[in-house]
Design a protein around this nucleic acid. Structure first.
Length: 947
RNA sequence: GGGCGGGUGGUGGAAUUGGUAUACACGACAGACUUAAAAUCUGUUGCCUAUAUAUGGCUUGCGGGUUCAAGUCCCGCCUCGCCCACCA
């Protein structure tokens, strides 16, 4: 048997492909297809995740190419960033040198992947030809007023000594260094991404992206509708503004809480409270967001002043507490008994609370799902009063109201039926005194219903059959419903009963959902969602409120107090102020070859960089010493690929018009928010400047899953479960690695690495190789097998093609394996003609070209072909040949499989039924039962319905 | 608390969108080749009852329902994973 030598073969073809420039991107594409992979940070060695990203993407690129597309499939390096700088500090190697070394290494390893690689289409964000245009982008934003300087509390990473964007803070820790983030007040540059919040949400709907990524972006932007409400300050003409989404609860608002950063605290603080308040604010100021979140108990201080509730007119004390966020809304909230946080705080400091929302709403008889949702029913045996508790998942956990039941005979019937069904009782005597059913009590969730039950007032209908049967034997419990605490409730009827249960319910619970208003003057009885509009309108007339849409999204802080990034092209002049560097003076060059001292201070702080002349007045001026967040670099790189040498602008407008937007973008889910949101923002900005003619950069997004260590955990050095792809590459080659990664499971899922399975995939490669390269000996030619082989080939072409197109590599490869297994048998028996064999093998190699490019090319050559297999077209299957001539028909009796027979494909129902009946007569499948009905599904089954 | 996605053999996973559940692969077992092992090849492999047979029974987290027919649709429950979260 001929052995396949992956190492030598792959090296051979990689060299040839390179020399013949096989993968050169066409200059004037007829059918352009932009196949983009998220460019990597060149960290040194490629890890498995890189392979999982690049290799399947390359398969898709090759597949598109075989379908006649002109494919742009570039590779670049997101080469600025902290690791290089940290290495420079730690090891005394200049960051640029370290980066260049890593890029070279990464590049060399990437070539071993054997992907479609075009050296022309390579970019490096740390090269002056690139960051020149990153700086240009900054200036465009600056000119448009979208790059602004603001003093703000920022997330300070004490380890990396830099500011981080909110997006880079994970649970209060820096995403890169892992350091606990501190708070610092600094003047920083921001991009006003919030100006695009609405568009960034709206335009998602037209994108072919995974739903969860869209949802994550929507959540991150965090749009909410609410109201801005003014609470007039007592003995002052000023007022405190509060943003709330729950203005329906305003009548129960009893106090106001301000964030420690709130600008009005100083002027509102009473002199008696001053010391305490100042102390508290200082304490809070030292705390980071993490400290705040981790605090087990809420803390706060009364500042000594009062405001008036604009709705109820009541006097409300003003507190300061750090559980209120300074950066969201107005940094002030009003508090009442309908918010868990407020209640917790109020209870701790003994602040009075009020309620104004009751958790009941809706009418059950209007709801078609009502009948399905009765769960408990109680009856007071003394008064025969019945109370029903109901919950259901319908309408996303809606609440149903009582009332109106007395008149509705049908509803009672419904309930009766339901109880019967629910319990399995055969002869329940239902309490028929319908006039005594006073209230349905509908809890909005099972938990709430349980809590009602837990009050001990009610008895739960047990759906466990065994228990019900036990109950049934007990004459006393015949109705299965009973008051448990009769004494407590026996004298209560009607509304009193209702309120009694309700009070028991909310004694320890906080109702934070929607409901019916009470204690709310003219709005009593109104439902929450309606009340929100009415109350806002009512207060708006008095100038005390307005409707307001609010976002959680903050402006993008792009300043970094680091060296290894694109310098912000700004000059500070004493007389001219903030002066942008003129575009023709770009790039602001980053000094290279810099060595750091132990303090890690940026070389950009040195005079040789900072001291410049003002471009406007030529006076002595200072450069901005901050660099840009590396996410700025990656927010526009896809625009540069089509023409990487373009020197007249950031991107070549003609080439961009040809290739963009990106047809398919592949990368990790970890970029669901950061990178993808920033790139969309920048695209929208450039679109608004009329520099490009599309407003979304990536039409289709595919997220690959994560490859885990063999133990099922995330790969990490500390766990010692890291798989080094180079090891496998050396031994088994790139094709095997690629094929395994694609075969292991659905691409979006990832999963644990399994070396044994990997070897199985390599076995397949060897099997195919010997199948193709070892000579075929025809023995007895069988025309039926030959025809069948043709059918199988066409089926395989169809299945593999469709599956690759749908990014279902695993099933595509399974189909291919199945086909190869068939071929093995045929070869062993030599049952088809030599010519038929040869044709099939040629097709097989083409099918495999996108999946195992080196192996396919090698076999292609061995088959005597002279032009690369990667220049061939994908095979067209013949729809007529995909269909089988004969099909297996299944015979079922009452849906159970009993027998099968073979029939000519396309036989009509009559024929199939006749054949099935004949089979029944022979084998008595129906056991002499009477056939009531026969269901025939052509080409599939015959089902006899018997007895 | 909010959002998203899962639960199918010993394992990774298939299943034409309601029509033969367990494709393909891994592993395991048996056999061939070998002094032996590895590699390779061949066969068996969902579970139960059984010496065996199959025209036997059961099976897609659990319990119901719709249907001639349910992994797939509906209702309820259990459970796992990921992401976000004092956002008022």
């Amino acid at each position: 048997m001929k052995n396949y030598d992956p190492k030598a073969t792959e090296a051979k073809w990689q060299k040839i492909w390179q020399e013949t420039n096989l993968y050169k991107t066409p200059e004037n594409p007829k059918k352009p297809f932009y196949n983009l992979v998220m460019f990597p940070y060149p960290s040194g060695d490629l890890h498995v995740g890189h392979w999982y990203n690049f290799a399947p993407a390359d398969t898709l690129g090759r597949f598109a190419r075989m379908h006649g597309y002109d494919v742009l499939q570039p590779l670049g390096y997101d080469a600025f960033g902290l690791p290089a700088e940290n290495a420079a500090i730690k090891r005394g190697i200049p960051a640029d040198e370290w980066t260049a070394k890593n890029v070279a290494n990464f590049h060399a390893q990437y070539l071993k992947l054997g992907g479609m690689y075009d050296p022309e289409k390579e970019i490096n964000t740390s090269s002056p030809e690139y960051y020149r245009w990153t700086q240009w982008l900054f200036l465009q934003l600056f000119k448009a007023g979208k790059a602004v300087q603001k003093e703000a509390y920022v997330n300070w990473d004490p380890v990396d000594k830099t500011v981080l964007a909110n997006e880079q803070v994970i649970n209060g820790f820096a995403d890169r260094s892992g350091a606990k983030v501190e708070r610092k007040l600094l003047k920083q540059w921001f991009f006003t991404i919030t100006d695009y919040a609405e568009e960034l949400i709206d335009d998602l709907k037209d994108l072919d992206w995974p739903e969860r990524v869209k949802q994550q972006q929507i959540n991150w932007i965090g749009k909410s509708h609410g109201a801005l409400v003014k609470f007039p300050i007592v003995d002052s003409d000023k007022s405190i503004e509060v943003y709330t989404t729950r203005i329906d609860t305003i009548f129960s608002g009893t106090f106001i809480v301000l964030a420690p950063e709130h600008p009005m605290i100083t002027q509102l603080t009473d002199s008696k409270q001053k010391k305490e308040v100042e102390q508290y604010i200082e304490q809070a100021g030292a705390k980071t967001d993490v400290d705040r979140q981790e605090a087990k108990e809420k803390t706060g201080v009364f500042i000594g002043s009062y405001v008036t509730n604009p709705a109820s007119g009541e006097k409300m004390p003003v507190w300061v507490a750090d559980f209120v966020l300074g950066g969201y809304g107005t940094g002030a909230v009003f508090a009442d008994a309908h918010d868990e946080r407020d209640v917790e705080f109020a209870r701790k400091y003994n602040i009075p609370l009020k309620q104004s929302i009751e958790p009941v709403t809706g009418t059950p008889q209007e709801d078609p799902e009502f009948r399905r949702s009765i769960v408990a029913l109680v009856r007071n045996p003394k008064t025969n009063e019945v109370l029903m508790i109901n919950w259901g998942k319908n309408n996303g956990g809606h609440i149903f109201i009582g009332g109106g039941v007395d008149e509705n005979e049908d509803l009672i019937e419904c309930a009766k039926r339901e109880i019967l069904e629910e319990t399995g009782y055969s002869d329940v005597t239902f309490v028929k005194q319908t006039e005594n059913i006073h209230h349905h009590y509908f809890a909005h969730s099972k938990n709430v219903a349980r809590k009602i039950l837990a009050t001990g007032l009610l008895f739960e209908l047990n759906t466990d059959k065994q228990q019900d049967q036990a109950l049934e034997t007990d004459e006393k419990n015949k109705f299965s419903v009973e008051w448990i605490e009769e004494k407590k409730a026996e004298n209560l009827v009607g509304d009193e009963l209702h309120q009694y249960v309700y009070r028991r319910l909310i004694k320890d619970e906080i109702w934070s959902g929607d409901g019916i208003l009470y204690n709310s003057d003219q709005f009593d009885g109104m439902e929450s969602s309606a009340a929100r509009i009415k109350i806002t309108d009512w207060l708006a007339e008095k100038g005390l409120a307005e409707h307001k849409t609010q976002y959680k999204l903050r402006d993008w802080l792009i300043s970094r107090q680091r060296y290894w990034g694109a310098p912000i092209p700004i000059i500070y002049c004493d007389s001219c102020g903030v002066v942008p560097v003129p575009e023709d003076q770009l790039p602001v060059v980053l000094p290279l070859g810099q060595k750091f001292d132990a303090t890690g201070q940026s070389p950009l702080l040195r005079e040789s960089f900072t001291d410049v002349k003002c471009p406007e007045c030529n006076a002595d001026a200072k450069r901005e010493t901050d660099t840009m967040d590396t996410f700025v670099d990656s927010s526009w790189y896809y625009l540069r690929y089509p023409n990487t040498n373009y020197s007249k602008g950031a991107f070549d407008p003609e080439a961009v018009k040809t290739w963009l937007p990106v047809d398919r973008y592949m990368g990790g889910i970890e970029h669901a928010i950061l990178h993808l949101l920033y790139a969309r923002f920048i695209t929208k900005f450039l679109y608004s400047q009329k520099l490009i003619d599309f407003n979304e950069p990536f039409k289709k997004l595919i997220n690959q899953g994560m490859i885990l260590g063999p133990d099922g955990n995330k790969m990490s050095k500390s766990k010692g479960n890291v798989i080094d792809p180079l090891e496998y590459l050396e031994k088994y080659g790139s094709d095997a690695l690629r094929l395994y990664l694609m075969f292991m499971g659905p691409y979006e899922d990832g999963g644990p690495w399994d070396t044994r399975r990997f070897e199985g995939t390599f076995r397949f490669i060897n099997k195919v190789y010997s199948l193709v390269s070892e000579s075929y000996i025809q023995q007895e030619e069988d025309t039926i097998i030959e025809a069948d082989l043709e059918t199988k080939l066409h089926k395989t072409i169809k299945k593999v093609g469709e599956d690759i197109g749908a990014v279902k590599f695993n099933t595509a490869i399974a189909a291919l394996m199945e086909f190869v297994n068939n071929l093995s048998v045929i070869k062993q028996n030599g049952s088809v003609s030599g010519q038929a064999w040869q044709q099939t093998i040629v097709s097989l190699v083409k099918i495999m070209a996108p999946l195992t490019p080196h192996l396919a090319e090698e076999m292609w050559e061995e088959l005597g072909q002279t032009e690369s297999v990667h220049l061939q077209s994908w095979l067209k299957y013949d729809e007529a040949k995909v269909k089988d001539d004969v099909v297996t028909i299944v015979v079922q009796v009452n849906g159970k499989l009993k027998a099968e027979f073979v029939a000519i494909a396309g036989s009509d129902k009559q024929e199939l039924e006749t054949m099935a009946r004949k089979l029944d007569q022979e084998k008595n499948l129906t056991k002499n039962g009477e056939i009531l009905k026969t269901i025939v599904v052509p080409n599939r089954l015959v089902n006899f319905v018997v007895k």
